[in-house]
Design a protein around this nucleic acid. Structure first.
Length: 192
DNA sequence: AGTGAGATGGCCT
DNA sequence: GGCCATCTCACTA
């Protein structure tokens, strides 16, 4: 079942945790690939020093974060990698969930750890060729190049690990906030 | 295994 | 000019 837009309008931490186990669909040309979300981070908008919209900062890059929840937000980082986010809440609350790692579902391959190409926000976008072209898409529409569904995969609260976010040391105290969530013992998670 | 540098563009002061 | 929600490669040991 495809996730409705209302799914994304909830509290950002709730959405982040709920996204674990959901299925991301990526359409390129005639093919559609699927991947289970296994690692995410919450970015809490205007009051979060680690968030691009901290203090209501509004640039060309962050336009889509000010859309309603359920849109994609893709940005370029370090001049060469892209990061995929799902916007949450409403226009007045520019918050988002960063998709840090997914588990590919199409190929029945027994991947060795060194061969995993989707365990990190930059690597997963490179693997699925997700770029700024995928910014501002409506994730609740099956016609979008990116959309998200629930295939019935169950995740219990005990399987969700919380810890500080990666790569935000500059954000002071906020760097310690437990806003990174991942599935316990999942091999596709970027790091433990 | 662990550390350090480099690639490279947008946004900041 | 400097920093960044990253990753890879080359080096140490």
């Amino acid at each position: 079942m495809i996730l409705p837009q209302s799914f994304y309008l909830d509290d950002t931490v709730t959405v982040a945790k709920s996204l674990l186990g959901k299925v991301l669909h990526i359409k390129t040309g005639n093919t559609e690939r699927r991947a289970r979300i296994v690692e995410v981070e919450a970015y809490l908008g205007v009051t979060d020093p680690a968030c691009h919209t901290f203090e209501n900062r509004r640039t060309n890059r962050t336009q889509s974060m000010y859309l309603q929840g359920g849109h994609s937000y893709v940005y370029l980082i370090y001049g060469m990698y892209h990061c995929l986010n799902f916007v949450t809440r409403t226009e007045a609350h520019p918050e988002a969930v960063l998709i840090r790692a997914v588990q590919p579902l199409d190929v029945e391959s027994h991947l060795k750890k060194k061969d995993i190409k989707t365990n990190g926000p930059g690597k997963l976008c490179r693997h699925y060729e997700i770029t700024r072209d995928h910014d501002g898409l409506r994730l609740w529409k099956k016609s979008s190049a990116l959309y998200v569904s629930d295939d019935g995969f169950k995740v219990s609260a005990k399987q969700i690990i919380s810890c500080p976010r990666i790569g935000v040391d500059y954000a002071g105290e906020a760097a310690q906030w437990p806003l990174r969530f991942y599935l316990k013992e999942n091999v596709f998670v970027s790091r433990v």
